[in-house]
């Protein structure tokens, strides 16, 4: 009995400290949520609390008047394009490294190349890349940014998919070869269908990285029409006439899709984000 009560006491102590830490996270996020449904005139008298009058029209204003419907589409196009290119290319490479030639020279060389690539700070290559993109007329285009995002996320995607494919039973591939499958068929009929769980994890992490990406979005897209949500929110925040109600509603709209995905796939997110160590 004595042991039990000591344990309970310790657990309560744990909960008190953990709750305090949790509040440091929750309260600022709550302020953002409150602000997103607060009328603009109320900010002066009620800076942090729940709004006296709830104004859901902030969301309508942001979505329609602030043109966020179009901006969301821009971001979605970037995510979808990057997923298509990055996952296709990365799975081909992962298949090569895990199945075709797991112990070959190429595996070690590519492994080292991609690891070095992951460690290079973006500041080393962003300026020459900008000049190359300008000459290729890829600035201000989705294609240009999709290529950049695909390349930047590829090392991580290759590692993650490879680590999954390498665990697939060799017998399946051997059986397919006996039945006369070509190399391409080994990839499309055997490796891909069996690897779908890792594509979910990789896809979620790549989507998160692209949706939230700031540096390249701000640098490579100057045309307001094509800007994704991260750089639009930046230019909104920097205007003189700060309309916090509108910006907060827009921010919540930016965060909401990811929050929903995170709630649904928390395990995949955490496994993916902590395995590769990508910068968030």
């Amino acid at each position: 009995m004595a042991v039990y009560s000591k344990k309970t006491k310790a657990a309560i102590g744990n909960h008190v400290i953990l709750m305090l830490l949790a509040l440091i996270i929750i309260l600022p996020v709550l302020v953002l949520l409150f602000n997103s449904i607060k009328p603009d005139e109320e900010f002066g008298v009620n800076p942090l609390g729940f709004p006296q009058t709830v104004r859901l029209m902030n969301y309508y204003d942001a979505f329609v008047a602030g043109n966020y419907a179009k901006i969301m589409v821009n971001s979605i196009l970037l995510v979808a394009g990057t997923l298509a290119v990055c996952l296709t290319f990365s799975s081909l490479a992962a298949f090569s490294l895990a199945v075709l030639n797991p112990n070959g020279k190429s595996t070690i060389m590519i492994g080292i190349y991609l690891l070095v690539g992951l460690s290079i700070p973006a500041q080393l290559f962003i300026l020459p890349l900008f000049i190359i993109w300008k000459n290729l007329h890829l600035n201000n285009t989705y294609v240009g940014l999709i290529i950049i995002y695909s390349a930047l996320n590829a090392p991580f995607a290759v590692f993650l998919i490879r680590s999954y494919m390498i665990q697939l039973p060799k017998e399946l591939f051997e059986a397919a070869i006996v039945e006369g499958a070509s190399t391409i068929q080994l990839f499309t009929r055997v490796a891909l269908p069996l690897s779908w769980p890792v594509f979910l994890t990789t896809g979620l992490v790549v989507s998160l990285a692209v949706w939230n990406e700031f540096l390249f979005a701000v640098t490579f897209i100057h045309n307001e029409e094509f800007k994704p949500i991260s750089s639009i929110l930046y230019s909104f925040q920097n205007r003189r006439d700060e309309n916090y109600a509108l910006i907060s509603a827009a921010s919540v709209m930016m965060a909401a899709p990811l929050a929903v995905l995170f709630i649904l796939f928390q395990r995949n997110f955490i496994a993916g984000l902590t395995s590769g160590g990508t910068k968030g």
Binding site: S90, L114, L129, I147, A151
Partner: peptide
């Protein structure tokens, strides 16, 4: 199979 990833990564990074 490695070529596409290597090509875009070389181009960008």
């Amino acid at each position: 199979f490695l070529a596409p990833v290597i090509l875009i990564h070389m181009l960008v990074v």
